[in-house]
């Protein structure tokens, strides 16, 4: 049997009353290149945060390489959405890539020559060595994205999550990211990424996870990425869930008495 990199069981995440993810069950095998696909607000980024362990699920559990998330020592590489950080921050490109080495350094140790060389190697992989002394705010959007990719490479982890790395990037960056993904796959790393461009899914990803609040389908691309599943992901609204959430909201805010609702 294929060893799972990520195992998700009955996962529910809610911000206050509003559920963002309901009842997710999925297995992502080791060494796969998996795309998370779904409409806006489907909970794609939330699922990444849950795997990263930065938000606590309301119920259910997650396992990373067969270990429950909260007891796992496994580090996870992460490429956040570009808008999530402050690009005016006074750091240079190489400093950002070096951040990827921090967790392996441990407390109180500063990155030295070994880390610097390694970070340069990772910058090389995305073709950014020339710009290593630029302040990150002076880069183009695509270049910023490549810095984040280099930082994730510098983390040197078995599992890497990326939140829409292809969003709004130039052709050179797209090419660079593709090459990096292919290299990672060759090395047997597992990469899970949120992806918007449905045209390229079949070309690049061997696994897909179709998401719209609930899991629509998950599995190998050839079986899962079907017209019918896409219709179910993007087409019908999950009216029942919407109504349930609305009812909970009304009761909480005290606008309606429950009795009247039942009459």
């Amino acid at each position: 049997m294929i060893r799972p990199a990520i195992e998700i069981h009955d996962l529910t995440v809610a911000y206050r009353e509003k559920p963002v993810l309901w009842d997710i069950d999925a297995v992502i095998p080791v060494g796969s290149l998996c795309a998370i696909v779904g409409p806006n607000g489907a909970g794609k980024s939330t699922l990444l945060s849950a795997i990263l362990g930065t938000i606590r699920p309301a119920s259910g559990w997650l396992k990373i390489f067969d270990k429950p998330l909260d007891r796992s020592e496994e580090l996870i590489g992460f490429v956040p959405q570009r808008e999530s950080v402050d690009w005016d921050f006074p750091v240079e490109v190489l400093d950002v890539v070096l951040m990827g080495t921090y967790s392996q350094l441990g407390w109180f140790r500063r990155p030295g020559k070994a880390q610097r060389d390694w970070a340069m190697e990772c910058l090389e992989a995305v073709g950014m060595t020339d710009l290593r002394h630029r302040q990150v705010g002076e880069l183009s959007g695509g270049q910023q994205q490549r810095v984040f990719i280099a930082r994730a490479l510098a983390q040197d982890t078995q599992l890497i999550l990326m939140d829409e790395p292809f969003a709004g990037v130039d052709a050179a960056t797209e090419e660079a990211i593709r090459t990096v993904l292919e290299d990672l796959k060759k090395k047997g790393r597992t990469v899970v990424l949120v992806h918007h461009d449905l045209q390229t899914i079949e070309q690049f990803f061997d696994h897909v996870l179709l998401l719209n609040l609930r899991l629509v389908a998950a599995g190998p691309t050839s079986e899962t990425f079907t017209r019918e599943n896409l219709m179910r992901t993007y087409g019908g609204r999950l009216t029942l869930l919407d109504e349930a959430a609305e009812a909970v909201r009304r009761i909480r805010t005290g606008r309606t008495r429950i009795g009247r609702e039942l009459e």
Binding site: V85, F89, V91
Partner: peptide
């Protein structure tokens, strides 16, 4: 370096 990471990218710091 810990404060730097927390300030620049809180999500990665937690991860």
């Amino acid at each position: 370096k810990e404060w730097k990471l927390c300030a620049f990218d809180p999500e990665l710091a937690r991860a």
